[in-house]
């Protein structure tokens, strides 16, 4: 990878004099890498860890590197990956969304109910689930951007309220007796590829493109990097920040629908602790809890790293509780690395 260290700025400033002209016909990949250098470093590290792990598991277990097992990992990771994409956008704005598990459950349950009781098709139900997620996201966004609650608190409230709503709606009983077609998103296939993987790919590619190429994406990074600077630059911070939470909520709704579809039912207990997995995926992939940094590619790598650790543990017969410990260690390492990087950058400024 063409990843040179940037010139050190604690050298006397005159050292910059002889440096190449500000812009040449430098290849665009390099330019893009430069822009997100810090994220790229974490991404590279996480990707290396993932590759090493995949190679090691391929030798350790004959069942690992099979199409069935890989599709299995892909489908299992799909929900976490979709919701981790949502979480990444929020984290880049220096926010956090603790409500993803509750909102996913709410969306999945509502999606199941409209199919069972109102005869909606699975597609119509998906739209409803996305709308439910977006509505929860709108509430989060108004609380954060409008009422100026810290994101942690705003979404902690939604985590509790959302879960409560799920139990009220369902009477704490799962929503069953769904038609076979309900399984399409979670267990269906398209040209031999699990539908869930296709959805995840579409979500991830669109989100990555939006973040890196659109003005809205630029504002997402700008707000997370320096909210005051964004405001003074004339960016409509309140509107844009709310939009981030709405968009994230919509993706969480979609993820919740895929999750319900996988088990062909709406489960009121779904997604408890899910926020930890998706935050971990984002952070391992280079998203910074201090805002301003994070990329979808990294988040996907993070999500798959966690999934492969879990899958590998199962194949190798490692006690299930050790998986949690391993994931915990990875999170510590990732956040430590993030802070170390930040401190070094600040020491330069």
């Amino acid at each position: 990878m063409p990843m040179r260290r940037p010139p050190r700025s604690d050298r006397p400033d005159t050292a910059a004099t002889g440096i190449e002209p500000a812009l040449g016909t430098r290849d665009r990949l390099h330019a893009r890498l430069q822009e997100h250098l810090a994220s790229a470093v974490s991404e590279f590290t996480a990707a290396t860890a993932l590759v090493v792990l995949v190679i090691a598991l391929s030798f350790a277990s004959p069942n690992f590197l099979t199409a069935d097992n890989l599709f299995n990992i892909g489908s299992q990771t799909a929900v976490i990956a979709i919701i981790a994409v949502a979480q990444t956008m929020v984290i880049i704005t220096k926010g956090i969304d603790l409500s993803v598990g509750s909102v996913a459950a709410l969306a999945g349950v509502v999606g199941a109910i409209v199919v069972r009781d109102l005869g909606f098709s699975v597609w119509e139900a998906t739209v409803v689930a996305i709308a439910v997620g977006a509505a929860a996201g709108l509430a989060n966004g108004l609380l954060v951007a409008g009422a100026r609650l810290p994101p942690f608190i705003a979404t902690l409230g939604m985590m509790s309220a959302g879960r409560g709503l799920v139990f009220i709606i369902t009477g704490a009983v799962g929503v069953y007796s769904l038609p076979e077609s309900f399984q399409l998103l979670g267990n269906g296939q398209i040209a031999g590829i699990p539908f869930a993987i296709v959805i995840t790919a579409i979500v991830a590619v669109s989100a990555a493109f939006m973040l890196s190429q659109s003005r809205f994406g630029q504002y997402v990074y700008a707000m997370g990097s320096n909210m005051e600077a964004a405001r003074r630059s004339g960016i409509a911070v309140r509107r844009n920040l709310t939009a981030v939470y709405v968009l994230a909520g919509a993706l969480v709704g979609l993820g919740g629908m895929v999750a319900a579809s996988r088990v062909n039912s709406g489960q009121p207990n779904y997604g408890i602790g899910l926020e930890l997995d998706v935050i971990a995926a984002a952070v391992i992939g280079g998203a910074s809890l201090f805002g301003g940094q994070g990329r979808i590619a990294g988040t996907l790598i993070g999500a798959f790293l966690i999934a492969v650790v879990r899958n590998g543990s199962v194949l190798l017969g490692i006690n299930i509780h050790y998986q949690q410990v391993i994931v915990g260690l990875i999170i510590w390492a990732a956040v430590y690395f993030d802070q170390y990087r930040r401190r070094r950058l600040e020491a330069r400024g």
Binding site: P6, D13, A16, I19, E20, P21, A22, L23, A31, R348
Partner: peptide, 28 residues
């Protein structure tokens, strides 16, 4: 391109216009 031209005109020397601000010195 616009940024590079403008900085050139003002005599501001930075490594590259794609460099994140965090990587610059205080003066830059």
């Amino acid at each position: 391109r616009g940024a590079a031209e403008a900085l050139e005109q003002l005599g501001v020397r930075i490594p590259r216009v794609t460099t994140p601000i965090a990587m610059l010195s205080g003066g830059q």
